[in-house]
């Protein structure tokens, strides 16, 4: 941290901090607390029955596995995209770099309808895959593709800066000592970028678990097969089963918070590394 020891020289400490905490409480903390209060009024047996029956477990499973698969795909291809953007020169590089941010800026519903049109049986890509016996839309594969779209920027944008700041010296040394490129990558570069890659993976995974807009269109929403957990909450709400919806929401919140905690720990370790280096 820069600056003098006494930072209270500047005006507005009480006002800005007070307003920040007030607004945070009103918009985020108090409404979120409602989830816990509502579930607390449910009773154990009821709660357990809601969050642990075949259809709900199937939905957690679909959400969890597709988010995991998508984050894995993004870890591989996201690293490749970051690598190519940082290290090579090719025409249209700046345009491609902007394109990576598109999933951040594009509304999820638009991504959903567009991916569905593309990968449905009569779609542009879907019709090519159909003769090969691959069905994408309305299967877990379709959900995974939607989540790959959503999660891509998280991996690229966390890996990119680390890759950019990597010193060339260590790679030089590895070459001098006779290592081939791939070995240098595996032994020198990969350990350096691993924390960033893992953070990107975790961010993409956490986002994928809760994603709704891009998935509902392409998933087909068949209970036990392609129904995701957020959709289950939606369905319960439409049937005015508020307690049931809230119980499932609580389970998802706990999963997200654990993911968030892991991400923060990873980032803390990453910062330590860069400072000590």
């Amino acid at each position: 941290m820069k600056g003098s020891a006494n930072r209270r020289v500047l005006p507005g400490y009480g006002l800005s901090l007070g307003y920040t905490i007030f607004y945070l409480c009103v918009i985020v903390l108090i409404p979120l607390a409602g989830i816990f209060i509502k579930t607390a009024g449910m009773g154990w047996a009821d709660f357990w029955h809601t969050i642990w029956n075949a259809r709900v477990i199937a939905a957690y499973k679909v959400s969890f596995l597709t988010a995991l698969a998508a984050a894995g795909i993004n870890a591989v291809f996201g690293l490749l995209v970051a690598w190519v953007l940082v290290r090579y020169k090719f025409p249209g590089k700046s345009f491609i770099d902007s394109l990576v941010d598109l999933p951040f800026a594009l509304p999820t519903a638009v991504a959903g309808v567009s991916l569905t049109a593309l990968y449905a049986q009569n779609g542009w890509i879907g019709s090519k895959l159909e003769p090969l016996g691959i069905k994408v839309a309305y299967t877990p594969l379709g959900i995974t593709i939607a989540l790959v779209f959503i999660g891509l920027p998280f991996v690229v944008r966390t890996v990119q800066p680390v890759l950019q700041d990597l010193e060339k010296d260590t790679e030089e040394a590895a070459v001098m000592l006779g290592a081939y490129r791939f070995r240098t990558f595996r032994k020198i570069v990969l350990p350096e970028i691993a924390p960033a890659l893992l953070t990107g993976f975790a961010l993409a995974f956490a986002r994928g678990i809760g994603e709704y807009g891009s998935v509902v269109f392409i998933s087909g929403n068949m209970p036990m097969k392609t129904e995701i957990a957020p959709l289950l909450i939606m369905t319960k709400l439409e049937q005015y089963e508020y307690a049931g919806a809230t119980a499932i929401a609580l389970v998802m919140l706990v999963i997200s918070f654990i993911a968030l905690l892991i991400i923060n720990l990873l980032q803390a370790r990453m910062n330590k590394r860069t400072i000590s280096a």
């Binding site: 409602g34 509502k38 957020p230 909450i233 998802m252 968030l260």
Partner: peptide, 18 residues
């Protein structure tokens, strides 16, 4: 950062609960 970690559906649900 908390709202980033909350599923959009839950973000709506909390206001319905209130």
């Amino acid at each position: 950062d908390l709202p980033f970690a909350v599923s959009p559906v839950i973000s709506g649900l909390i206001f319905v609960l209130m």
